Simulated scan of single mutants.
Amino acid sequence: MITTGYGFDTTAMEVAQVADLAGRRAIVTGGASGIGVETVRALATAGAEVTIAARDVDAAQRVATSLIKATGNKRISVGKLDLSSQTSVKAFARNWDGPLHLLINNAGVMATPLTRTPEGWELQFATNHFGHFTLTLGLFNSLRAEGARVVNVSSSAHLMGAVEFDDIHYDHRPYDRWQAYGQSKTANILFGLEAGTRWASEGITMNALMPGSIATNLQRHLTQAELQERIRQSGAATTRRVKTPEQGAATTLVVATTPLLAGISGKYFEDCNEAAPATGDTHLRGVAPYAQDPEAAAQLWKVSEATLGF
């Protein structure tokens, strides 16, 4: 188990203060809101050149302008990226020029009503997994040139279920918005597990994390009553502790920068440390066994390649 000396209360800026990212280039998807903003702030403070990849370019530019002023780092820029659109993702990857040292796959959608992309894919899986899968593979040559790290922001919601390969997109089974979110977050973890197998010789590592329970725009598809009911059903009503966005971004910074993860892929972190296996008596804690299954990871990669045309 990898332990770092950090914990629940650690902030991203605390981690950034001991990280030297001078000369490093980073992309943060969803870097214009929530923990994405704090991730960009911390990376820029540590000296990185950061690109905010976001759907709303105007909002992202406002964030970039603010963070340039706050950090004194003028190398913060913006790129258009809509992860639900394969056309947008491919265009972003195609337009990237030069090496890439850190890819923070942070953006996502949560608990949406049943929505399908033009391809007929369920929106949460299409955005949270397929979008980042295409982006990461599209940036492969830039990543391999520098021995980069890919960081997938997953969630304790992965404990809600494995990837249902027989019906990923709810073509035949009743749609459950939380189950759909959960399987997309399981996919974020499995992605890193298989990447460790396939890319070990390329010098690229990929790991996943749970940022914590944070009030952000991610919950925009839920009423407060729906969110509270979900917390009650999960059994976490008496154990749930809410983090600030600054604390929520800390685990991302740890996974992106700690020397302890050099050459290591497929891990899942929470509260800045590697998570223990989930057990029945822990509420939304730990990593599920199906999210650490090499066969499921290999199957997900093959399904993703076949679906996306790689």
Rank of each mutant, 00 (worst) to 15 (best):
S84M: 08
A53K: 04
R232P: 01
A276P: 02
I214E: 08
M1N: 01
Y181L: 03
A91D: 15
L21T: 07
P259R: 08
D271H: 13
L190K: 11
S85Q: 09
F130L: 14
F140M: 08
G138I: 10
M210R: 14
A32W: 05
T282Q: 14
L123P: 00
T51A: 14
K243T: 10
P277A: 10
A111S: 14
S156E: 15
L227F: 13
Q179A: 15
T3V: 11
L193W: 04
I214G: 07
D281M: 12
A262M: 01
R25G: 00
D97I: 01
G120V: 10
N128Y: 04
A296S: 14
S234F: 13
H221N: 15
G36F: 11
I214A: 06
A215C: 05
G192A: 02
A148D: 04
A126V: 02
V151R: 05
A187R: 06
G31N: 05
E14R: 01
T239N: 05
Y181V: 01
A42N: 01
T71S: 09
V57R: 07
T39V: 03
E229L: 14
I104C: 06
G147I: 04
Q299E: 10
L190Q: 10
G30K: 00
V163Y: 02
D97V: 07
M206A: 14
Q86W: 04
R177F: 05
L159N: 00
K243P: 09
G203W: 11
L284M: 15
F130K: 02
L300D: 11
D293E: 03
L43S: 09
E14I: 00
S155G: 01
A208S: 12
A42D: 03
R173H: 14
T112W: 02
G79S: 15
A60I: 12
L135K: 05
A237G: 08
V28T: 00
P289A: 12
L253R: 07
F191R: 08
P245Y: 11
R173T: 14
Q228Y: 01
C272S: 00
K267R: 13
A225I: 12
L114G: 01
L139Y: 08
T65P: 03
I35K: 02
H169I: 10
A19M: 08
I35N: 09
S66W: 10
S66T: 15
Q292K: 14
D167A: 02
M210D: 15
G47I: 11
G34T: 02
T65R: 12
F269I: 05
G161V: 09
K90H: 03
V37K: 06
Q86C: 00
A249Y: 09
H221V: 03
T134Y: 13
T87E: 14
G161W: 06
D56S: 06
S184T: 05
R220W: 11
K74W: 03
G147E: 06
T252L: 11
T258I: 13
P113N: 04
Q224L: 11
V63F: 06
P289C: 05
P277Q: 04
L137D: 15
A215G: 13
Y268Q: 00
